[in-house]
Design a protein around this nucleic acid. Structure first.
Lengths: 344, 344
DNA sequence: TTGTAAGCGTTATCAA
DNA sequence: TTGATAACGCTTACAA
């Protein structure tokens, strides 16, 4: 099956390549009959303009890349990415863009970035001073960061992680809890919370600041820190681990709803009543949060809105409007039923 | 900022374009010093080979397209797509492919298909005899269908929808229910279940076949059919609607877990006890199914495995092995706590 | 209104 | 081992 090109159509229709090109891209310039004849022949011999060749000359691909963090297994199973992509895709549908998910190629983000035929990138949790960031700059196409420490000159979308975290911790403390465990999302600097970056750092800061108001600190005694991956099963594991240990907290502050949901289900299994025996809060307000029993008190963030805004900004930049504002979307404490004052 | 090309590097390094190309793609052929010098200069002036131009000559993009059905809003928010993409992405990461999500461009699937610079497509629920299918053939690149009625000569991945549906309906009937409502996913042929196609048809067939064994049929009397979108909120709506009507069923058979979860939460809100007052089953076994209270009896399907298999097959076909087998993955009845014999 | 011809930035071929 | 040079398939000034 020899490939059919614009030349074949031109020959068969007795016109030039130019006319065929016009028939597809700017039909108004040709007499209707000609357009129709060309399109018919094209259909007949199953011709479709080669999108790569088209991109070659136009310099545009009509796709935007979404750079997934190293740990896809960590992020994809969560309902988070769906919602985020949904926000992006709504914008894309409107303006006629496709979405390229760019996972690391054989472990290398750099290679993935350099290979992706896209007009711009949205990065998710990619921090400054990484190889990925260097390559991103080399590509010399617009990109915008989401959930990273903002970088000068690069548009950014973030949420009020710190505000939200402070609010939810404050709520737990006001309920009277003093003996608690913070469950952070596992990072590359295990339990060295002073070295956290990005979202992790912001949320931690929020927790610490609320603790400070109550003259508490992360001392490993009253207030402890554990880490686990942001998956339901990891949450279940950590609960078992925690509940088998000597000192049981009266409240758990989890850095993600996914973890919290895992904890709730494991607690239920072991006959631990929530919130009677143990209070718990999460972060993100994913859809399940309102559906689990008891409904989870958490911090809502506009995940959909984040995707939507990121895509909108990126496309503006692709279209030449240079904007590099840093946007911060609000978070909100959502009070449900998973917190009660400690027993006794 | 003038674009930097392979020429700039060649000039600066005092070598030919060919050598620069080798330095990037086949470094073994050049003396190590030369390679190093070229790469250094490239880094210095921030050169990255243009992926489009590369695709132009190689004829390969290193991306596979995932064709989303018309209704993204319908599918993306569900945990289904995440899991499916996760399966695909694991394979892609291994072999160095990216994933292009291809939503309709301004409502047109055809245009989206024709524009996507990919080496092959995975379609999700796209049926034969659609415009999309015609365009897919015109593209003349490999594609494989998932969750569609199999097409001769086109590799397909499906699950035992009918078997699973029959099993779950049978389970409900054996529990003693006779007064029930089937909630189907809203289609383009509303309530004309004889005209259902694809997954919808398979599941419906399964339900009907189980009913037949109990000498029951879909008569609008004992066994009724309703339709709703596969979203939690649509599930909640339909429950309210249903529970306000005259005749209340003793069991609900929902065609998706998402719907079932919506129903459960709405029921809880209205004080209807599940399964004491009402039994319910779903389909898919999404992660929430085991977490909601009561845990949902449903049919599990290997969503992740579907993505994995589809990607594997597609990539094999892209690499030239022509396979067009139709694969059918198993489903399994998962018994949990949402069904009990009817009261009285 | 239509056609000619010059790119677009690579990789592949083949000769030096 | 290296370097000209010809594709690759399309768009787009510019010319007719």
């Amino acid at each position: 099956m020899p490939k059919i090109t614009i030349n074949d159509i031109a020959k068969k229709a007795g016109v030039s390549k130019t006319s065929v090109s016009y028939a597809f891209n700017d039909p108004g310039r040709l007499p209707k009959e000609t357009v129709q004849r060309i399109l018919e022949i094209a259909k007949e011999i199953r011709y479709v303009p080669n999108p790569i060749a088209r991109s070659m000359t136009t310099g545009r691909t009509g796709a935007l890349g979404v750079l997934l963090p190293m740990s896809i297994p960590e992020i994809i199973p969560s309902p988070f990415l769906s919602e985020f992509l949904f926000g992006i895709s709504e914008v894309c549908t409107e303006v006629g863009f496709s979405i390229m998910l760019v996972p690391p190629i054989m472990g290398s983000m750099e290679q993935a970035i350099s290979n992706a035929a896209v007009d711009g990138f949205i990065t998710l949790g990619v921090e400054e001073n990484t190889e990925a960031m260097v390559m991103l700059r080399r590509r010399n196409i617009p990109f915008i960061t989401v959930d990273s420490d903002p970088i000068a000159g690069v548009p950014a979308v973030n949420i009020e992680d710190e505000v939200g975290a402070r609010a939810v911790m404050d709520y737990v403390l006001k309920a009277g809890h003093r003996n608690l465990v913070i469950i952070a999302i596992k990072s590359e600097t295990p339990c060295r919370f002073q070295e956290y970056v990005g979202t992790l750092r912001q949320r931690m800061n929020g927790y610490l600041s609320a603790l400070e108001n109550f003259d508490l600190e992360l001392d490993g005694d009253q207030v402890r820190l554990l880490e686990c991956e942001s998956t339901v099963s990891a949450g279940q594991e950590i609960f078992k681990h925690l509940w088998n240990s000597q000192t049981k907290p009266t409240a758990i502050v989890a850095m993600s709803d996914v973890i919290a949901v895992g904890i709730i289900s494991a607690a239920k299994e072991q006959g631990v009543r929530i919130p009677a025996d143990l209070s718990i809060v999460g972060f993100d307000d994913i859809p399940i949060a309102s559906i689990v029993f008891p409904a989870l008190t958490t911090v809502s963030q506009p995940i959909y809105g984040k995707g939507e805004l990121a895509a909108t900004l990126l496309i503006q930049n692709i279209k030449g409007k240079h904007k590099d504002a840093h946007h911060i979307l609000p978070t909100k404490l959502i009070i449900r039923e998973s917190v009660r004052p400690p027993a006794t």
